[in-house]
Structure formats: C-alpha cells, structure tokens
Simulated scan of single mutants.
Amino acid sequence: MLTMRTLLLDSTFFPVRIINWQKAMILLLTGRAEVVTEYDDKKIRSTSQSFSLPKILRLYNRHNTQRQVKFTRLNVYLRDDYTCQYCTKSFAFKELTFDHVIPVSKGGKTTWKNIVTCCKKCNSKKGAKTLKESGFQLMKPPKKPGWSATMCLRIKENDPSEWFMWLPN
C-alpha cells in the first residue's frame, strides 16, 4: 500500500499542508491544482490511464492559508524545545508533561500563555501551586508561537528533499 505524501502549496507558492496521495490525485484530476514536481518512480494506474504521483502541488484558486499554530501537546513541546521550563533540562517526549503556570484550581486556563513544558519530577513538586508558592521560576514566559513549518507541516525524515526549498526559514 502506498503511503506517499504530497506538499500542497497555495496559489502564491506558500506551503499550506501535507496531504495523502489520494487527496492529491483528487485535487489534480478535478482541476483545482497543478503539479510542481512529481515522483519519478511512483505511478497510479487505472484501466485506461497512468499518472505519476505528485510530490508538490500548487492550488489554482486563492486558499485561505491558516498561518496559526494549533494548540497541541507536541506543539507546546516543540515551542519549548523539549526542555522543562523549571529545571531547564531537556527530555524525550515520553518523559514530559505540560504544566498550567496558574493552576486550573486557581482559575488558570489551558492556553498558550499558561501552559509550559515540564518534566514529571518538577510537575509533581509544583502540583497545584502558583510559581510563588512553589518557589519555581520559569525559564521564559510562555507565549503563542508564530507559524513554523516544523509545527504546522510535520515534515518527516524520509520526505522529499525538494520540499525544503519551499519552506520559509
């Protein structure tokens, strides 16, 4: 089974998202996108036609590109570089949690500005205390990150090298 992915660009050549090959073929065959580059060795065949799978597609119509980062656990960890914001040590994904700077029990919300990456040991020590009550200090104040290819596109190690020339720095 094919697990090929396609980088989708908007009409201005800005990366929008990564889509599966089925969605790419639908956009292509319905005339909503054009091929920028294709896989040389990957073909889709019907009873009467053969198509190369697109590596990169560009949408013809203007696309309302959402240039905001979704609030997810992984994106919090990426924003904080997998580093506990209290003890400043780096950890693997499975060794981390996230912490409400202002605890939920004290009115804290689950937002970019109130959540930080935290190791399990520090999270256990802090518990439902405020920073002042716990004696902890933040490495840096939490904030909503700007759009980045790393957070929004989820590029994998085995994705085509051509994709990287389309990604903003």
Rank of each mutant, 00 (worst) to 15 (best):
G108W: 01
T111H: 10
A128D: 12
Q22W: 12
G108I: 01
Y60T: 06
P15D: 05
Y60N: 09
I155P: 00
V16P: 01
R45T: 15
P142F: 13
L78A: 03
T6E: 01
N114R: 00
C119R: 00
L131H: 11
I18G: 06
Q49F: 15
T97A: 09
R5F: 06
Y77Q: 09
W166R: 03
C122N: 04
W163I: 06
E162R: 02
K120V: 11
V104G: 00
A92Y: 10
C122E: 03
K132E: 14
L96M: 03
R32H: 14
V36W: 01
G108M: 01
E133H: 08
T47H: 15
K125I: 12
W166D: 07
D159L: 01
L138N: 01
G31W: 08
W21N: 04
K55A: 09
Y39D: 00
A33P: 00
K109V: 13
C152T: 10
R62L: 14
I19Q: 07
N158K: 09
Q49W: 11
N75E: 06
G108N: 05
E133L: 09
P145I: 02
D81S: 14
H100W: 03
F91Q: 05
W21G: 04
D159A: 07
D41T: 15
F93D: 08
K120R: 13
G127T: 07
I102L: 14
N61V: 04
F98K: 08
E162H: 03
N123D: 08
S105E: 11
S50E: 15
R5Q: 07
S148A: 10
E133C: 08
S105K: 11
L7A: 04
R45A: 12
C119Y: 03
L9S: 04
K106W: 12
L153A: 08
K89S: 09
K129Q: 07
M25D: 04
K143L: 12
K109A: 15
H63V: 09
K23I: 13
R73I: 11
E34H: 10
I56Y: 03
Y82E: 05
S90F: 08
D81Q: 14
P160Y: 02
I18D: 03
V116D: 03
N158I: 10
F13V: 02
L153I: 10
I56Q: 02
K113E: 15
S105P: 06
M151K: 07
A24S: 14
K132R: 12
F51G: 04
C152W: 08
S90K: 15
E95P: 00
S50R: 10
T117K: 00
T110S: 15
T130R: 02
N158P: 01
L28P: 02
P145E: 05
L74S: 05
